[in-house]
Design a protein around this nucleic acid. Structure first.
Lengths: 143, 143
DNA sequence: AAAGATTGACTAATCAATCTTG
DNA sequence: CAAGATTGATTAGTCAATCTTT
């Protein structure tokens, strides 16, 4: 259980640290940033499902994320003629700007905290191994 | 930034996995469990401050955590005669039972996911190094 | 004035129920 | 009926203002 508490604590403290920098720089919050980044990667064809899966939040929550992004003028739902059950979510120009600016801030904080020595690469690969085990456990006991 | 996303994703997926098991076993939620565990460690003399610090949440949020624990009958605020600004929070018998039962469930999930081989010990020490850097950064740029 | 805690308004998640389209 | 999404009620956090005690 020790490792569990460590993971939770590391994430919480790191999240709060990054969040504070974003706020100080007048950027969007971290939750918003992570959502924008995913939509940016999907390059205009991301759906609510994609946000849900990649943020590990429920579909309902993902839908509300898009609501907020739209209200903030950072993204828009575009109708998808061939399957009208879902929309495609595209970033606006402001959304593109926000994700780029956020990336700079987050990158800078992470570099300041961890440096970019080989210890960080080693840590990343350890985290990857842990993630693999968690993913396997999730597959083994699906919803 | 890669390492940041890995930390966030690992924590989210692991948290959700543990939360699900707790719910299936009819236990209190994970947030509640972590709070109870901290109070248990303080052995009847934990304050709101302690919860705030050790859960990395604000003092206001910690105060509300105690409200919820009291409403659920898991803890009680005991007046502290020598400094009446704060109370000491003690677990009730139900609270003790809940933390013990929760511990069993969390322990079992973590063991199932990660096993208890030396790779886990190595990972824990890597996480500890990362935590040290985060803590240093927080000290360097206080609230 | 500072320390500890509480409260109210707000933001973000969960689940379950529902609506629309395939 | 299944898939995708949305909505409403609930639960947990944040911040800022306030109250009590030191």
């Amino acid at each position: 259980m020790d490792i569990f508490e460590r993971v939770v604590r590391l994430e919480t403290t790191l999240w709060n640290l990054v969040e504070r920098s974003l706020s100080e720089e007048g950027e969007a919050g971290l939750g918003t940033f992570l959502a924008l980044q995913i939509l940016d990667r999907h390059d205009g064809s991301g759906r609510v499902q994609d946000l849900s899966r990649e943020l590990s939040i429920t579909v309902g929550a993902a839908s509300k994320v898009v609501d907020r992004l739209e209200r903030a003028g950072l993204a828009v739902r575009r109708p998808q003629p061939d399957d009208r059950r879902s929309s495609l979510v595209a970033l606006t120009v402001d959304g593109e700007r926000a994700v780029a600016a956020g990336r700079v801030v987050v990158q800078r904080v992470i570099t300041t905290v961890f440096g970019d020595d080989e210890m960080v690469d080693a840590a990343a690969s350890v985290l990857e191994s842990l993630q693999t085990r968690v993913d396997d456990a999730i597959v083994a006991v699906p919803a």
